[in-house]
């Protein structure tokens, strides 16, 4: 019996997905190329050195501080701080590396005069874009995996919950997928690699630096007491408003928080500490309680959807380019 027909429907889909990834020559070519490039090896080495330095500096700082003000829970604090520092460094690395390895995916093919040759093969435009996307994502995943032993040292020190670890990995992977899909889209729209890189880095910076700054400024400018639950504060400050307007304001700020991995992670973590909310958070408005998705889940869903839109738009853009 055929291997495919004997599988249940969900397994069949997984089988097709696995097969489409494994049998995608673009993915194989891109990964082979990436692994051969001196650039990849240098980036990976430099990245790991930086992570080790960061972890060491934080370790020394916390231990020195503990010598002056002894903390009985120093191991847990150290574990949390090292984990947080490494996760932020990974995010920064992804912000730099994902556009670097994906924004040239289509423009370099055009510059090498190979794009026409790929287009006239049996590969669909979708499989070309998928191959490029998976290759970009995989390189970032290799980076994340390579730093896993260092990140896991936080587990040895303690103070880290599986949710924090799992949540951070999900946020990093989703951010990678988004940055790669966006960079590829920028690459399909640009004639030259430099302009694709410029576009990709600009948007990546807005989302990963601009949006968190905006959230911080809004929180600073509005009279939200930071020692209280953020959303209780939001409701209290928006109370003088019309109920509909109040909901819109809360939804907008909620969305703004979920618009970037940094604020999504911090607010989700605070909600978890305050309310024990992992996935859903109950928000009270109009004398009723509404379940809101935790910001990290909202971020994940929102950015996976946006990534899909960019993937789809990249396919359309390539087809559009063929019309002169």
């Amino acid at each position: 019996m055929n291997e495919q027909t004997s599988l249940p429907l969900s397994d069949k889909k997984n089988y097709r997905l696995r097969k489409s990834i494994r049998n995608n020559p673009i993915l194989v070519k891109e990964l082979r190329g990436l692994m051969r490039q001196q650039r990849s090896r240098s980036v990976l080495t430099f990245y790991l050195i930086i992570l080790v330095i960061i972890a060491f500096l934080f370790y020394v700082t916390v231990i020195s501080a503990n010598a002056i003000n002894p903390d009985p829970d120093v191991r847990r604090t150290l574990g949390k701080i090292i984990f947080l520092a490494i996760t932020l460094a990974e995010l920064a690395a992804i912000l730099i590396v994902a556009p670097l390895f994906s924004a040239d995916s289509i423009t370099s093919e055009r510059e090498n005069k190979t794009f026409d040759l790929i287009q006239i093969t049996s590969l669909t435009t979708g499989s070309i874009i998928r191959g490029k996307l998976f290759a970009g994502v995989m390189f970032s995943l290799i980076m994340l995996l390579s730093s896993l032993p260092l990140q896991s040292s936080a587990f040895l020190l303690g103070g880290l919950t599986p949710l924090e670890f799992f949540g951070s990995i999900v946020l990093l992977i989703v951010t990678t997928i988004f940055l790669c899909s966006f960079s590829i889209w920028a690459s399909t729209r640009s004639r030259r690699t430099s302009s694709a890189m410029g576009l990709a880095y600009s948007i990546a910076s807005i989302i990963l630096i601009g949006f968190p700054t905006l959230v911080y400024v809004i929180i600073k400018l509005t009279p939200i007491p930071l020692d209280q639950d953020l959303f209780v504060s939001l409701q209290s400050i928006s109370k003088p408003l019309d109920p509909i307007l109040q909901t819109i304001v809360i939804a907008f700020i909620w969305l703004l928080i979920a618009s970037n991995p940094i604020s999504a992670a911090f607010v989700s973590y605070n909600l978890y500490l305050d309310e024990g909310a992992r996935i859903l958070y109950d928000l009270t408005a109009f004398n009723a309680s509404f379940p809101f998705l935790a910001p990290w889940i909202t971020f994940t869903l929102l950015y996976l959807f946006i990534s899909w839109l960019f993937y789809w738009s990249s396919i359309r853009q390539i087809k559009q380019n063929n019309k002169l």
Binding site: P25, E109, K113, T114, F115, L117, T121
Partner: peptide
Amino acid sequence: IGYVPEICGVYPDMTVWEYLDFFGAAN
């Protein structure tokens, strides 16, 4: 169809065998 453009596009980091193997897989 088999198409040969005026300038043959190449991947700088590939050998002749890998180049043809890649396009074979793509076909």
